[in-house]
Computed example of a mutant assay.
Amino acid sequence: MKGLILSGGHGTRLRPITYSQQKQLIPVANKPILFYCIEDLINAGIHDIAIIVGPNKEQVMETVRAVEWDARISFIFQDAPRGLAHAVKISRDFVGDDNFIMYLGDNLLKGGSADFIRDFSDSKVDASLLLTEVEDPRQYGVALVDEQKKIIVKLVEKPKNPQSNLSIVGIYGLTPRIFEAIDHIKPSWRGELEITDALHWLIENGCNVRYGMVQGWWKDTGKTEDILDANRLILDTIENENNGSVQSATITGKVKIGKNSVIREGSAINGPAIIGNDCIVSASTIGPYTSIGDSSEIHSTSISNSIVMEGARIDRIHQITDSLIGKNVILKKDDASHERKTFVLGDSSQVML
Rank of each mutant, 00 (worst) to 15 (best):
N205E: 05
N165M: 05
P176E: 02
I303A: 03
L25C: 05
G54R: 11
K89G: 06
D315W: 09
F35Q: 00
L14W: 06
I314W: 03
L174A: 00
A44M: 12
A268H: 14
G311L: 05
Q247Y: 06
G216Y: 12
W217L: 07
G326A: 00
K150D: 01
A71F: 10
I76F: 00
N277K: 13
S128L: 00
R210M: 01
G258R: 12
I46M: 11
H10D: 14
G141H: 06
A114W: 03
E225K: 15
D79K: 15
V351E: 02
H10I: 13
A87I: 05
H299P: 01
P272G: 05
Q24W: 00
I152H: 08
M309D: 09
P81K: 05
A268S: 15
M309E: 09
N260T: 02
S349D: 07
E62F: 04
W69C: 11
C207P: 04
Q319T: 01
Q139A: 14
P272L: 07
R177F: 12
T12E: 15
I152R: 05
S245R: 14
K2H: 07
R13Y: 11
F77A: 00
Y172F: 15
E310M: 09
G141Q: 08
E239W: 06
E265L: 14
E310T: 14
L199H: 03
V308L: 03
I182D: 06
P176W: 01
S123E: 01
K219I: 14
V67C: 00
C37M: 06
D79H: 11
I269Q: 11
I38D: 01
I317C: 02
I51N: 08
N243E: 12
I178E: 08
G45F: 12
T342Q: 04
A312M: 03
D136S: 07
N208T: 12
